[in-house]
Design a protein around this nucleic acid. Structure first.
Lengths: 224, 224
DNA sequence: CCCGGAAAAAAACAGTCGATCGTATTTTGC
DNA sequence: GCAAAATACGATCGACTGTTTTTTTCCGGG
């Protein structure tokens, strides 16, 4: 036998990428064998080499493509240049959460498999990530300058917010207790609270806060 | 040749654990070969089997030991049962950050190599993690009941805080821009701000909803 | 209808993997 | 100083790894 009836290059390529994402997310890059991947796609292992030059290139391509998509999508979400820092942070968080919640596997790989990238490939991905982080840092900087955010250290806040948001894709499963929108709004509330930072580090010893009114729901988000 | 002059069981065991931690943290469990590990320790790879029955048992033992240490240390840090929720949360955060900052590699493995554990071992570790999370959740619950914390969803806040704090060990390096104490206090401030949650409703409404639909309320009702 | 290139099979390659085993030597307890 | 236990070597196993090459078949455009 040789070429299978009904075979199509683009279709096979998509199947390989899809199966590869799932396998790497589940077992990790090193633990995924090309024989496993080929079996999942329904082809022989040697045939994979019609679609990439080696295993490392396959991983890098998956990650690079995803990072590019992420950047493009973020730019689109932040496209209206205007807006005060609170609004821009809101857009950032809502975008980031929505994007992660819809692609838990893909995003997870980009954080967990950096160790599996060879030096040059790693450098390229890290640079893209720095750009992404910078976009958040810029918003936080602007907010601090405008006096709406109180942050002791913008760099740390950037890392904290991204870690907290990206953590979502380690536990979120469709059909869970909370819908995507609910997750998004709850995390938005927490990020905004963090950014407004009513409690600077020095105030740790201070007395408990004043009385507060009871609310339910994060953002009643009314259409008003 | 056979037994090496000056060889000592306990000493070798410690060297294996130490080298294993470093190798797994750097390259991952699947990517670490026992020949690599043995070379690092300075013995032949067959000799490793005097110290564990197989590779999986070695990984599990590393993780289980660290989880047990973590629990014991946390219990000690929270030992004085009293204290208001703010004080207890402060103790929790300061402990957690200090512990992570001092053992970045070890702690990192416990988060990143869960996928490499066989089902039974994974279940044991997940149970320990649940216990750890519960201790934070209890503090947040108490704080919400007392009215000092405003949190829409304690479970999500627990995950958010842990993700944010545990993220530290992915970037913290001794000798960096900030000292351990500085990192600890900055993150404490952010967590307290997040927990006290001054914000959401007004902030969200303040930002005019430009692109995305921010409509519909937050929670789709508990719905199992 | 037919042909060139695309797509996959099939077989093989040289290494490496985790794991086992018998053996030799050293350490330790008495 | 001696026997028993501990420790490590060194060779080896079969299975599996990523990758290459050759061959066969199918698809699409003329």
């Amino acid at each position: 036998m040789a070429r299978t009836a009904g075979s199509s290059g683009p279709r096979t390529e998509e199947a390989i990428r899809s199966a590869g994402l799932a396998l790497i997310a589940t077992h990790g890059y090193a633990a995924m064998s090309l024989r496993q991947l080929a079996a999942e796609v329904g082809i022989q292992q040697g045939s994979l080499y019609n679609y990439f030059r080696n295993k490392q290139e396959f991983l890098f391509d998956l990650i690079r493509t995803h990072m590019q998509d992420l950047h493009a999508a973020l730019d689109a979400a932040l496209a209206p240049e205007g807006g005060d820092p609170v609004e821009r942070l809101t857009r950032f968080v809502e975008f980031h959460v929505a994007y992660h919640v819809e692609r838990p596997q893909q995003v997870f790989i980009c954080y967990s498999e950096l160790r599996s990238l060879e030096p040059d490939n790693l450098a390229a991905v890290v640079a893209m990530r720095r750009d992404y982080e910078r976009k958040l840092s810029d918003i936080l900087d602007a907010g601090r300058a405008a006096g709406v955010f109180r942050l002791d250290d913008v760099r740390m806040a950037t890392l904290a917010i991204l870690a907290m948001l990206s953590g979502i894709c380690t536990w979120y499963k469709p059909g869970g207790r909370l819908a995507k929108d609910a997750v998004r709004e709850i995390f938005l509330g927490m990020v905004l609270a963090l950014a407004r930072g009513e409690v600077p580090a020095e105030a740790v010893e201070a007395a408990p806060p004043p009385a507060l009114s009871r609310r339910n729901g994060v953002a009643r988000a009314g259409a008003a």
